[in-house]
């Protein structure tokens, strides 16, 4: 699983970082950043999915 953020849609709700702080962070403005390069470790996949399901802007893209 890989994750990315559509920065055109992200408005910095930070709900991804709340759901999955190991996977998502915040830039200087509070917009989302992805903290993991490449594949998401299996044990964090559930949290990453939860982050996607909590983004009000639907800005998180999960690819498997």
């Amino acid at each position: 699983m890989k994750v990315s953020v559509d920065m055109g849609s992200c408005h910095g709700h930070q709900m991804c970082a709340i759901a999955a702080p190991e996977v998502f962070g915040s830039d200087e403005l509070g917009n989302a950043t992805v903290l993991i390069d490449g594949d998401i470790p299996a044990e964090l996949e559930g949290k990453a999915r939860r982050a996607e399901a909590n983004c009000p802007e639907r800005a998180i893209i999960i690819s498997e």
Partner: peptide, 12 residues
């Protein structure tokens, strides 16, 4: 589990 709430609004 699923909570795309908009207590803080949405968009710009």
């Amino acid at each position: 589990e699923h909570n795309r709430h908009v207590a803080f609004g949405s968009g710009i």
